[in-house]
């Protein structure tokens, strides 16, 4: 495993706040997993083409037609906070 693994950087990228205890436990578990996957380095992979779909299906495009959307009430029914038909969150600018 890379010595550069920094749990703070990764949790910051993933937007998950971690307690010190969690960091220690997760760091240890991730270490075990990353060591295990090191084995992949021994596989010869050059020239391997990547298909996103396991059956190599090719993307089908949708006709540009509008259909009925969610009812406004249904769209908002899970919103933790609402105002004038908007979702409300704490400020996203400082």
């Amino acid at each position: 495993m890379s010595e550069n693994f920094n749990i703070d950087d990764v949790s910051n990228l993933a937007s998950i706040e971690l307690s010190e205890d969690e960091k220690a436990k997760l760091q240890k578990d991730l270490q075990i997993i990353l060591e295990h996957v090191e084995a992949l380095k021994n596989v010869d992979i050059k020239d391997e083409k990547i298909d996103i779909h396991p059956l190599s299906k090719v993307l089908e495009l949708r006709k540009d037609e509008s259909k009925e959307s969610l009812k406004h009430e249904d769209a908002m029914m899970n919103s933790p906070e609402t105002k004038d038909g908007h979702f409300v969150v704490p400020p996203s600018i400082e």
Binding site: R62, D64, S66, K67, S69, L70, A75, G85, F87
Partner: peptide
């Protein structure tokens, strides 16, 4: 398939996909 609209009224042309609701999937236009 939500209609592209110009509207002052918020959140009236939204669906599970463009709201990012769990389980919704994208299909390109």
């Amino acid at each position: 398939s939500c209609e592209v609209i110009e509207s002052e009224e918020p959140n009236i042309s939204v669906c599970p996909t463009c709201l990012g609701l769990p389980g919704a999937l994208p299909v390109p236009n």
